[in-house]
Amino acid sequence: MTEMIQVQNVAKQFVLHTQESAVIPVFENINFTLSSGDCIALTGQSGAGKSTFMRMLYANYLCSRGQINVYHDKEWIDLVQASPHQILNIREKTLGYVSQFLRVIPRVSTLEIVAEPLANFGYEKPIALEAARQILSRLNIPERLWSLSPLTFSGGEQQRVNIARGFIANYPIMLLDEPTASLDAANRAVVLGLIEEAKERGAAILGIFHDHETRNAVCTGEFDVTAYRSEAYV
């Protein structure tokens, strides 16, 4: 089991300059490790900062202190210090992220959206498109929708497109934010299957699952963020 992410003494606070520079401390001294084959569930009450923590691991949020070391291209890179160029590289090849909501761009077809991560990996367009078709079929998105933009899809359909896009490439590390929300039982099972396959190929997975069933089915451990909340938060 190789370690893929090492979070060391990470702290996070927000400073709201638009509200008289109010300081909102969030986390102190987080230490956390994620290894390949892991599937760790982030736990904590609603509002405890699970999504915030995940975004910090994706470099979408900054950290006030500490290191987030990611094993990328056979070396350790600290996301907190890395240049934007490096982080973009890491996101392309190593770090996958399935957010809660699909950001929809008009006029781009579902097929293209899903194929894009593979194209960035360096695969030829036809191969990427074929893989996109397969994973969309698996997620029960009907073929007649593939050439359309997800703009008019239902919430559940959009989420499945999001998942397809997140799982199409073999990222060594995957961050999943509520991947089964808005899905029915059948599609939840499909997502479970995808997560299991990812685990088997050695991916290191961190997820937020509100659905206990899913959590129990796939997760190998838990990480409670509540323990790291700043004292000031009640």
Partner: peptide, 19 residues
Amino acid sequence: ESGLTDQVLDDPQHPYSQL
């Protein structure tokens, strides 16, 4: 301020960016 687009827009640090 400068950084990744999603970071600057989702977690802006500088007062002007936040504005």
